[in-house]
Simulated assay, not measured.
Amino acid sequence: MKMLKWLTANIFLVFFMACNGDKASSKRFSITLGKGQEKVQYNQTLKAGITNRKKLEIDSVTYSIDGIRLQTEGNDINLKGIHLGHQTLEATVYYEGQSEKISKPITILAEKAPEIYTYTIINTYPHDDNAFTQGLEFYKDTLYESTGRRGESTLRKVDYRTGKVLRKKELSAEHFGEGLTILNDKIYQLTWRANTGFVYDMDFNKIKDFPYGNSKEGWGLCNDGTHIYKSDGTEKIWMLDPETLEEKDHIETVTNTSVFSRANELEYAKGKIYANTWQKDGVMIINPKTGAIEGVIDFRGLKEKVTQNKNLDVLNGIAYHPGNDTFFITGKNWDKIFEVKIAEKEE
């Protein structure tokens, strides 16, 4: 069963391998890892030791990741309470009245393979097939949408039952619209490569622009009621302060076998981040605290249910309706939005 889940999950996930080597060492010491442990799953034991090149008298060694001190027992390190993904294992070596820090890159993977989910269509609604959907979100039972392409990008308020656009704001021609989210009666919208996002009031009046930080592109947005989450096309999902829009922290999206990139449009629901996977008919279910991809929703077949046209593009757009406990799914230049229920896929 575990092998089946692993194989099915890989239909949707394109993994990449990370190279690992010493990031920092000295003429005195370096970190050595157990065989094959450059990649290790969360909550497993990492075996690490110190190569003592000068045969100095070592008093003690402590290990940490991201400033978090790790529990050790001899050469065994317990990997708990840390973020997943590409990390740096740092050792502080205390010797002969001195200390020295050395480090080594490692990759922390998820404990378990993703569960596989499928969908049941509850309702089908009309959708503007001129909308290159980049962001989709319900706020107080009303659907809001961000669309892309230069010269065609918009922010919209939509009656999802009829497909009618109730309010629309066009972006300037140099801006390619991307994800959106709404928090405390403020709308946040990204653009793609302009390093600029916008904040609006609920009447679409722009309050301010904001620059990106370490993330160079804007892809998807969602929020948990306190923090805003931002994807940028890499393995990282950033946590933003909703007032300053400063990138406070990030997680990396990983499975039990590899780090995964290209989370696109985001939705926060039931304590998880749901992320469209760019160019795939699947949605990842991500733990926002660790970055673990805990599930993958198989949306294959949905695109074939819309009217085929020359501009038809990929699935992109997921919005959770808390009142109905359903998800609304669409894509770029799709003429339909599907209201669906999600359930674990039977074997």
Rank of each mutant, 00 (worst) to 15 (best):
G67Y: 00
E57M: 03
I65C: 03
L79W: 10
I82F: 06
T88D: 13
L109N: 10
D66H: 07
E111A: 15
I77L: 08
I65T: 01
T72H: 06
I102R: 10
E90L: 13
Q98N: 12
D76T: 13
T72Q: 10
G74W: 11
K104P: 10
S103A: 15
L89I: 04
P114K: 09
A91C: 06
L56P: 00
L84K: 07
K80V: 11
Q71C: 11
G67F: 08
G67Q: 04
H83Q: 14
P114D: 07
E57V: 06
E73L: 11
H86G: 11
E100G: 01
K112Q: 15
I108D: 05
Y63V: 07
G67H: 01
R69V: 14
D66R: 10
Q71W: 06
L56I: 04
V61T: 12
I65A: 03
A110F: 06
D59L: 02
R69K: 15
G67A: 05
G67M: 02
E111R: 13
A113L: 07
I106K: 05
Y95L: 04
I82Q: 02
G74H: 09
A113S: 13
H86P: 08
A113N: 08
G81F: 05
S60A: 11
A113Y: 13
Q71N: 13
I102N: 06
Q71V: 15
R69C: 05
L56V: 01
Y63A: 05
S99Q: 12
Q87R: 15
E100P: 04
K80S: 13
L70C: 11
G74S: 11
E73F: 06
V61Q: 07
K112H: 14
I68Q: 14
V61K: 06
L84P: 00
Q87M: 10
